[in-house]
Nucleic acid binder design. Structure first.
Lengths: 345, 345
DNA sequence: TTGTAGGCGTTATCAC
DNA sequence: GTGATAACGCCTACAA
């Protein structure tokens, strides 16, 4: 019942009167082995219950067939969808996936990166923590020719693969969608401005207003720390204490948007007639809240799959050159009841 | 820019005029090394940018410090919360976590188990796929003294650790909760009956009815395949075609329950007055739907943490005995508007 | 306190 | 087509 009854190619070699090299080759269907011996050996291995030790193989061949993932928190729907995509496409190709959560702490992200490096992952997919402003801890990978893919929350100046959406344009069309519904004073729930995703959304928002000659009222643009449910309600409350409250809200995520809807309804404010709302991400809650939340479709699963693909393609290439290669996936407005006003025809 | 400039304890040994054993020990603060040399070596390692190769260490010490996780699909809120708990408490202790999704396919689960075994995980945490009826593919771990923790969706006859909730009692109190609200004809959305979690819930449901002398109408107990949103609406529609439709619904998950609520509202059926509804899991959507869904609190994160703890404790024990050790976590009814009727006092 | 030497299980480079 | 042999990087008795 204790360990140590574990079979190695050594044991097979002895039992079958072959050398370990032949065994090793046979098990991998190396072409230089005759079909007959290959079959013989494979059958014997099967029977004896031989199991390869990937640790040894990884060490020897300097290839762990493992992808490291660094994200904020798995519990967020966007993140878990993304990881689902990463894992599915990685496993298909025989790769393992090690996950690590930063819980949006810079220090955790740094120590996780260390751990992943020490585990000799052969590629890393990362989405930055809220706190991260410096990305030197990813240099260790690049320096060793290990591909780095940043996804969604990407840094500004890091030569690597990027898998993103066009946050600027997505925000622009979200804002324009509200304008089309007749909104004149639109509030924006912005996130941490040192993260690209949120600063781009803010920019897109402002540009859309400008383009439509709408006034930009700084009081309606709120930089939020976490875009949490609590913060959403709180900020909404503040906004509606203004003499001149907004008639539309574009939130950088769905959580805060849903929170705003629930708060406003409780105040007897009608959605979308008094205030039209649009969120970002298409989390499950967005289609459940009433009125259903309009939002921006965010291709989480696809982004995960593409990230894995970038890693694997890089590993196949001979020249491990690290260029910046940016893949931008499509988004679109999902138009639901929270923003669509009955047109008076 | 290419690899191979990677430093080993060998290089350090040469440069510092020590043997590799001294280096190795110094880096792990082995007690037999003088503080002075230990510091000297550690500082040099730091400076030179030495990074340990955990693959080599794992191979040598026969300990990968890695936990394998086998679950259906990360995207489900219950699962991602659980994994979050697993990962957080594992990393705290210096363990990696490799995830594998079965997508509720038995074949995937089997091949994932193989891959995890080959990676020499030193423990495995598994929640069975919907299809799984046979769990022989987990024997390979037990046979090698590798601890197996089944969590939530556990098998019937497998000597190992179990981390579960009391599904029978949880269902019982959920049903009783509806009965207290005055429900007489309660429908039950049941899941795949070969999975413990669902069969226990069905039993608890039936027992509660019996105990309160309510009629058990088989037509109101529906074995569902996936408990999906679509299935929820469809089954609800069927139920309300009956001459004598239910006045309460106890669903085995929140997804189907929410779907039922939305469907019924569209039909002009009032909740909770005409039909009281309670779900299971406390997914985020349950508190967003209107009326908010009553449900059973399911300690996903805690179950993950406890599973990790079971693994680590087992690894510390000298005798790697495999006994069945069942940990049952507490649940409770979360009472929300979908089930609470105004009492006429 | 430090060094020597062997091995963890596999693969790759030679040979034959 | 097959076999020696030497790594891969680290750990750990056993010596000194």
């Amino acid at each position: 019942m204790k360990k140590k009854n574990t079979l190695t190619i050594y044991d097979l070699a002895r039992e079958l009167n072959y050398s370990t090299s032949t065994i090793s080759r046979a098990l991998k269907n190396h072409k230089s082995i005759s079909k007959k011996t290959a079959q013989l050996i494979q059958r014997a291995a099967e029977e004896r219950g031989y199991r390869p030790n990937s640790l040894a193989a990884s060490l020897r061949s300097n290839n762990s067939k493992t992808i490291g993932v660094s994200i904020s928190n798995i519990s967020r729907p966007f993140v878990s969808d993304m990881i689902s995509g990463i894992e599915t496409s990685a496993r298909e190709k025989g790769y393992n996936v090690i996950i690590s959560q930063s819980h949006d702490s810079y220090d955790n992200e740094v120590s996780n990166a260390k751990a992943l490096y020490d585990s000799r992952v052969c590629g890393i997919i990362a989405s930055l923590s809220m706190q991260t402003e410096n990305t030197d801890h990813f240099n260790q990978f690049k320096d060793q020719g290990i591909p780095v893919v940043f996804v969604d929350r990407v840094p500004n100046n890091f030569q690597s693969y990027h898998v993103i959406i066009d946050n600027y344009t997505s925000a622009y069309i979200a804002t324009e969608h509200l304008i089309e519904q007749g909104c004149k004073r639109i509030a924006h729930f912005a996130g941490s401005q040192h993260l690209n995703v949120y600063s781009q959304r803010k920019k897109g928002f402002i540009e859309a207003l400008k383009h439509h000659d709408l006034e930009i009222d700084e009081r309606l643009i709120v930089d939020m720390k976490t875009l949490s449910f609590e913060e959403g309600a709180q900020v909404t409350a503040e906004l509606f204490k203004l003499n001149n409250p907004p008639d539309g809200i574009f939130s950088s995520n769905d959580t805060a948007a849903v929170s705003a809807i629930l708060y406003l309804k409780k105040q007897g404010i009608r959605i979308p007639d008094d205030v039209a709302v649009i969120g970002f991400n298409d989390d499950p809650i967005s289609s459940i809240v009433e009125p259903a939340l309009s939002t921006i479709y965010h291709p989480a699963q696809k982004m995960g799959e593409l990230s894995t693909r970038r890693i694997l393609e890089h590993l196949e290439k001979e020249d491990g050159m690290h260029t910046t290669e940016i893949s931008v996936l499509e988004t679109h407005v999902i138009s639901r009841a929270s923003s669509v006003r009955k047109k008076s025809t």
